[in-house]
Write a protein that binds this DNA or RNA. Structure first.
Lengths: 347, 347
DNA sequence: ACCCTCCGTTTTACCGATCCAATCCGATCG
DNA sequence: CGATCGGATTGGATCGGTAAAACGGAGGGT
């Protein structure tokens, strides 16, 4: 209680921060007891605990994360690359995903570190380095494609990681794209639509193909597929392309009464096509987008929302669970359909 | 060279990482010499240095960031809040800004930590906590508004911080919005336009007002302001609102031949209005957007680009420079006009 | 030969917390 | 009444580096 361990002047002026030793001295106990109060309060007698807690509150003590991390070799951090802007369709989700990840991490006492990288290889190299230097406990991969080089590099280097998007021989969390589109078809079919078109991405990419497959499956289930294969059109994920595709579908003799778009961008283009053709969205013809971007709300556009908060939680959980010899954790989450004016059945 | 300091089994199997002690043992020198090789190579004799470097390479040693940070009490990290998605016009910039920040930080050996917060107050509280726990050296504030509560809280708590956007009594980095819009007016005036309209945000917000002021100033400088005050219209930052405002301007008897928009969103709306009116962008009427979002390129829309990489560098520099009693660093950067088809003078 | 400087290296201490083993204490028990 | 026992508390070592001071041998000056 008299002086500081280490003969340092008590609460240092200015810049120095309050350490566990200051608290211990103030409460008249040892450092270890303070540590116990912070980490396993049950081990400390109530009276002592309260005395320590008072000292903690008075001095405004906050344990040094670095020291704790060093000693317990648990960095309390996960890393994720922040990609440069691209016209990739998932780019719109990137910041929402990072937000979800940050929030989920905080909920379990872990922070999110961002890093930039030029390509997949340097991203993987950075991940390895971050883990080797003890900076992070694991990393999250985003936008994983079928023959992605990253999972194998990281597995080889024994870097804990989880993918957002399916990957072989690795832990992943994904949102069921096929199911999302299928739920849109269900919704439209239940609203009485019998001819439902699909505006998709060019073939060859996982996400786009999954969404297309959802349309086929659901159409078939409703017995609407026969003769509908002409209603499946594909094109770039741009507003103009969406408008063009919608116009071409609606210009046919067997024009569909509803459209499912693989993105809000395409759906926004479709809305424009409706306007050009003098059709009223939701009344004359329905359209539903995907990803529930901010513009969907502005445009009163129905859309499929990915449960990003849950995705974040699952990823953090998978990353921090007792990894090892067991099969990597995988989970496929259902998206949620948000119905707005563009597809609401008129009363 | 014989056994490990601390009597630990040499390169531990599996999970354990290579430490400075392993390298020291392998090279037959002390830990400190290894440390010197890594940090101040000049202090070490060439022969010794090479021997150590060989050992470093062989063992794949990477210094533990946590240990280094703890000892030198320099976290090597900066933090920035990641905001939830909003319809705020600057939201489009958020991920690009974070990317720039991450890149700039890496260039100076600092990593970027992201955190989520519900409001400005809890954001400030988190910042204080992050610095107090030694997790980060400083924080970056984004979207700073005139009477923002955050700067004063952080100053009070002696948390080093820099704002992206002007703030009183604090370090900040900003892009000159007025100058950006003025450069657009210059460009249009040089292309022969004499009647130039402005599509802006509702009054009362720093960014929007700055951009509007740029239009006024430049128009006046070119002697085009007289009678032009009717060409300054304001509205929400949405696509629909942009289309509406453009239509209303172009429908007048004194219709402008060029439009300056305060955002790409508004400009995209204007492009739609042109289409509706049968006008050809860049030929019949010019339009220029702001922020050079990805859609600007797709739409062949001229736009003003904020020099985010430079903003990031300046922020990191300001945050890590010898802070203290001197006046906080402030810098106002010029944006760059990207001319595309929507405003290119026809040859 | 002696002292002093200089340089390269090692030694010692330390950053701030946690882990482990040892100690202390009152309470129970033979 | 001394030995034992279990929970509360403490001291010391440790995590992996870095700062500062101590060390030792080569070279220079007188």
């Amino acid at each position: 209680m008299t002086d500081m361990p280490g003969n340092r002047p008590a609460p240092r002026q200015g810049s120095g921060s309050v350490t566990i030793a200051h608290v211990a001295a103030a409460a008249g106990v040892s450092k270890q007891t303070v540590s116990n109060v912070m980490n396993s309060p049950a081990k400390v007698r109530t009276e002592t605990r309260e005395r320590v807690q008072r000292a903690v509150a008075e001095l405004g003590f906050q344990p040094n994360r670095l020291a704790r991390a060093l000693r317990s070799s648990a960095a309390g951090m996960i890393a994720c690359r922040i990609e440069p802007v691209s016209s990739h369709s998932l780019a719109h989700l990137h910041d929402r995903f990072l937000h979800a990840l940050a929030e989920a991490g905080q909920a379990s006492g872990r922070h999110l570190m961002l890093f930039a990288a030029d390509d997949a290889e340097s991203e993987a190299a950075t991940c390895v380095q971050l883990v080797r230097t003890g900076s992070v406990e694991g990393v999250v991969l985003y936008n994983v494609v079928p023959d992605d080089p990253r999972p194998s590099i990281l597995t080889e280097a024994r870097v804990p990681f989880v993918c957002f998007g399916r990957a072989a021989d690795a832990g992943w969390v994904d949102v069921d794209n096929a199911r999302g589109v299928a739920s849109v078809v269900d919704h439209l079919a239940e609203s009485g639509h019998r001819s439902i078109g699909f505006l998709g991405f060019p073939e060859g990419h996982r996400v786009g193909d999954d969404r297309a497959e959802g349309w086929v499956t659901a159409m078939d289930r409703h017995g609407l597929l026969a003769g509908s294969h002409r209603l499946d059109v594909r094109g770039e994920d741009t507003w103009l392309s969406g408008a063009r595709m919608a116009r071409s579908l609606l210009g046919r003799p067997d024009a569909p009464t509803a459209l499912v778009a693989a993105s809000d961008t395409l759906a926004a283009g479709a809305l424009q096509a409706f306007r050009d053709l003098g059709l009223s969205p939701g009344q004359d013809v329905a359209v539903v987008g995907y990803d529930d971007t901010p513009s969907a709300e502005v445009l009163d556009l129905s859309s499929v929302r990915q449960p990003l908060p849950e995705v974040g939680r699952r990823i953090v959980e998978a990353l921090c669970s007792p990894d090892g010899t067991t099969t990597p954790v995988t989970s496929l989450l259902p998206p949620e359909l948000i119905v707005r004016g563009s597809s609401r059945p008129q009363a």
